[in-house]
Design a protein around this nucleic acid. Structure first.
Lengths: 220, 220, 220, 220
DNA sequence: ACAGTCGGGACTGCCCGTTATT
DNA sequence: AATAACGGGCAGTCCCGACTGT
């Protein structure tokens, strides 16, 4: 502390920017957590990846947990929104949009092996940490709401069969999606994901109203 | 016990029984791992739960990993066999049997929150440890084979629609099942599992051939 | 406070008074350091005690070390001057004065347990930081000079035995004094200090010239 | 943890020997603490000096504090015993023995600057940690008892003046000794220690009975 | 076959000093 | 002069597994 090691700072500390620092931390943490799980991820590695020091991190986040929460709230939720909510909101035909989302699933090996970030975190932490559970549940909820709303909207506009229950159908879709993601992560084979895409698309097609039936819907 | 202070351990070492010791370890490990994940589980806790000491454990298993592998190969595989393979083998009507299995899903809170042991382990370890991945993949495979075989068999016997692809259908079933288990684990609400049961049963019912229309079904 | 949201700090910043701020810092630092040692003292605690903020402190002092130096130069040196130099300067009989000082030693528990501020700092830092060492050495020196001067003066005026060496005697006195302070700090018993007082007074009495034997004393 | 970094132990762990490990830790800790004080000493440095890892240390000691306690109880107490108790026990003439001890004080620069290990620790920690205080107090006590016993014994054997109070005299001796050690540590000059030796020897000589006046000394 | 002490080492996050920024 | 941001050392925890006995 004193006495011996008297060293003056050498390299300049690279222009403070709290927001950037925070964002870098969240992104780096997301990457590490995606790779190793929350508990398996090393704070040191996150720090290195973010180019940030411990002191800075513990200034922005109380502890590793708080950082993990931010990852769910920001990074993971953002990804899901971008992948599902946005396309659905912008869509004319909800089923086309959903099929588009399913077809857009990445088949890149790292994504196949990595699985779904949301499901990973949820599976790992739900039973262990209520904070994580609540946050991941919220993301699931938002996702579910977006899909259900799209279906409901589709029904109103005659683009989705009248008999289906939007909530149940949305849940089924999400469950099947996550299930295939899990199986693919385990098998590590893109063909498993492809099978999932095929099955999901097939399923989604069954949700369209029968042509020439009640109300005379036109295909989009 | 004679002469100088030479005393034999008083408490008897509980009648050596290697097989029992091993089994106790595997069961205790299964429990701990189910609760905390493989990496989160504490060898000490497993030992305590099994009433076994370190020396004993490291006699039977090279390391924690080896114990984990045994948990997959024995405990987890056993559970899946008991829950799926056995009912299916004994079944007259494969769809009835599958519906029976789905209906038998435990709604007990600890199971809802705990999720599916197989999926848990697979999700946690697939990306990190090839040994775990292979072993869980094998269990998934056996499961899949059993379901597919039942469906195939059902087709032959006219109890399952001819158009379905047994392999794809089995995969879909498993994916949806695991998906619902994941969602339930996250939501911690039995009603999510109930929704899953309902949806799966509904789906299974669609696999039955149309009555009185053998061989003439139209595509949906 | 007009127009757009331009607001001046509402709570007044307590009437800037650099000198007061500085003094408050030195006093608070003295207190903290006396309690916990220099390295053990927490800058935050000093700040709180002084009712001053970090920015203010680092305005007045380059770093914690500089504050510590000021504590030695100002607070500690001041205390020693007040306790030793002043009484000695004003004294008629130096031995009476010294005895007075010894008798004035505080027996209050916090002082017994706290020890001598000068010795504390010197012991803690001498080997670790040359700046502290030099500064505490200077205070010791001033102290020593004052005692030695008093003895020398006493000799001239026939109030102190001729044979004694003022420098050596002063050193001995200081050493014994600090030694007792150390022992008392360790034992935490006032009676140890009392023993020191008694011994020192006894010793000081032996420094008086033998009555009626001016100039003819034999050494024991 | 798992998955990636699979490394098998390479270097053999150097033949277990708990007692050696413990002793190495205590000795290394003594060195570090002597150099930097207890709070200033770095556990990592101690570990490096001892050639021992953290795990080993925290197996033998609950925490840094416990290691520090062992240093007092074992290393410091041992040094004092060796330096004072042993010579005194073996002595014919207690005063000769004490003078011998004083004359044996090391004048080596590192010892001058380092001060007395016992006093260092006592000064640093007495006010902060009751455990340290008690332990150092015990060492002081043992020391005091040995000196007092020697003086008492000397009195009985006519080698020490009858009028002196062994307890008070021992305390005075110890106080003066520690005082000089403190001053020397601060001044960093061996000549200060030499002055101390001279003064202490002179003082010790005054404790001898007057020659040819056995049994008839006057009170001072 | 089993008991358990010993030891290895990665990792967290606290703490605290300091420096930009306002 | 006040506060937010940052740098980083370091204690101590955790937990695995080896090795010595019994």
């Amino acid at each position: 502390m004193l006495g011996s090691g008297r060293r003056r700072k050498t390299g300049k500390p690279a222009a403070r920017d709290p927001a950037r620092t925070r964002e870098a931390l969240v992104q780096a943490a997301f990457g590490e957590i995606y790779r190793s799980g929350f508990r398996g991820s090393d704070v040191g590695a996150i720090l290195r990846a973010a180019g940030v020091t411990k002191g800075a991190m513990y200034h922005h986040f109380d502890d590793k947990e708080a950082l993990g929460y931010a990852v769910v709230d920001e990074a993971v939720a953002g990804i899901m929104r971008e992948k599902w909510q946005s396309p659905l909101q912008a869509a004319r035909d909800p089923l086309d949009a959903l099929i588009g989302v399913v077809r857009a699933m990445s088949l890149r090996p790292e994504h196949v092996c990595g699985g779904c970030p949301l499901n990973n975190l949820s599976q790992e932490m739900s039973a262990l940490d209520e904070g994580f559970r609540k946050r991941t549940a919220k993301v699931f909820n938002d996702w579910h709401r977006a899909v259900a709303a799209a279906l409901r909207n589709g029904k109103l506009r005659g683009m989705v069969r009248k008999e289906i229950n939007p909530d149940e159908t949305a849940t089924f879709l999400i469950a099947a999606y996550e299930g295939y993601m899990s199986l693919a992560k385990n098998s590590q084979e893109p063909k498993m994901l492809r099978a999932g895409q095929k099955a999901l698309v097939q399923y989604l097609e069954t949700l369209r109203p029968r042509r020439g039936a009640a109300g005379m819907e036109r295909r989009s």
